[in-house]
Amino acid sequence: MMTPAASFIDIRHPEQPLPDSFKGSVVAIGNFDGMHRGHQAVLEDAVKEARATGLKAIMLTFEPHPRTLFRPNRPVFRLTPHEEKALVAKALGLDGMVSLTFDEAFASQSPDLFITDMLISKLNARKVIAGYDFHFGKDRVGTPDYLKEKGEALGIGVTIVDMKTDRSGDAVSSTRIRQALEDGAIAPANRLLGYRHFFSGVVIHGAKNGRKLGYPTANMTLPENSRLREGVYAVKFVRKDGSLHDGVASFGRRPMFDNGPRVFEVHIFDFEGNLYDEEVRVILYSYLREEMKFDGLDALINQMDTDSVQARAILRYAEPLSELETRLWD
């Protein structure tokens, strides 16, 4: 894996000309929701090519997710929104990231216009790298073969990266990861990602029920499109200063109290302090059990004690899944 870039430029929905430093780069193109092992193969190829030729490596992606535009009534369960995507890209060693606005106007562009306007006029790309399943342009008529043929005819080198599979021979895909997270199958999801799934949020005030039980929590709401399985998790909690803390979390509707809106509640072990309004990240290590309703608060507290012991043991012996994961949280 390449050394992370010393500086990383993150540009979202650019309306002005792109920085001169982005021009003449190696450009990796894709939606990259998940930044999983298959995506990493594309991005690492871009970094290797850039370092070998003395160029910059840039990731070109899209926001919002195209399925959100085409099927607004069925918003996609996002794995890596913009900020998370940028964090992984930087850890992979890319020099920058451009997120183009994926709207009706962009979706209706011809493949030729995308190549000539974005790749040539705006980026002056020297080399383009994309995955085997990358499609672009109106009605997705731009195929990887089309990109290679047209790009090379216009003087851009194009590399198409083959499908990456797991040990079973199945393709590594965001669809499989989403389904695993919906099922509470955290270990399989994390293996496909190559790092443990994480998400960001802002700590909000709650009903303070956990504090009354001896388990104060930092509470977060997840996006409406999240289909993460409700239940109890072993987690690590990342503060804005980069510090990591072990914890146990409950995600759901609190059947012992109000059966209200879904909230992700993290009890951080051996921690005291005010976290309200702080933007934090949560890393999922293991799914412990379903959310339950108990016969009284004593039974609930006993189960929370058991959950905490199990979570501490899991986190104590957990090793990084990859060099990338080490870089993410170093």
Rank of each mutant, 00 (worst) to 15 (best):
V263S: 05
A125D: 15
P17V: 00
V266W: 01
I283V: 13
N259R: 03
N302M: 04
D183F: 07
L43P: 10
S308K: 12
L192M: 10
D166A: 02
E230Y: 11
F62G: 08
A5P: 15
V42I: 13
G151C: 00
R71N: 14
V266Y: 05
L113S: 14
P75K: 00
L192P: 09
D270F: 02
H13F: 08
T116I: 04
M292N: 12
E291Q: 07
R239A: 09
I11E: 10
V158F: 06
E224I: 14
E149W: 04
R254N: 12
S226M: 11
F237K: 03
P19Y: 00
G214A: 08
T53P: 15
A28V: 04
L79A: 04
V263A: 02
V141C: 06
D45L: 09
E83S: 05
R289V: 05
F77H: 12
E15H: 08
A50T: 01
S250C: 08
L100W: 01
A57C: 08
Y132P: 14
E265V: 02
I301H: 04
R262K: 11
G210E: 05
F269Y: 13
R12K: 14
L181S: 10
G54F: 03
E265K: 04
R227V: 12
S308Q: 11
G96S: 07
P261H: 00
P223G: 13
E278M: 10
N73Y: 02
I115G: 06
T326N: 11
G24W: 03
I204W: 11
N302S: 09
S286V: 08
K122A: 12
N73Q: 08
L18H: 09
L69G: 07
D133F: 03
E84M: 03
K164C: 05
R253V: 05
A57H: 03
A207E: 15
S226H: 12
K208G: 11
L315R: 04
A6Q: 14
I29T: 07
T3Q: 11
G142M: 00
F32H: 02
I283M: 13
L192I: 02
D133Q: 07
R126G: 15
R289S: 11
G184L: 10
V266D: 05
R126P: 13
A46N: 11
F269C: 07
A234G: 07
L222R: 14
M163Q: 15
A171D: 11
K208P: 15
P81A: 09
K122E: 14
L79G: 04
S108I: 00
V232Q: 06
M163G: 13
E224D: 15
I120V: 12
K236R: 09
M256A: 07
K56V: 01
R78V: 09
P14D: 02
F32P: 02
A130W: 00
G131D: 05
A249P: 03
L87Y: 09
V309W: 06
T221A: 14
D241M: 10
E152Q: 10
Q179A: 15
I160Q: 03
D298H: 04
G30F: 02
D95K: 03
I9F: 14
Y287G: 11
R126F: 05
P144L: 01
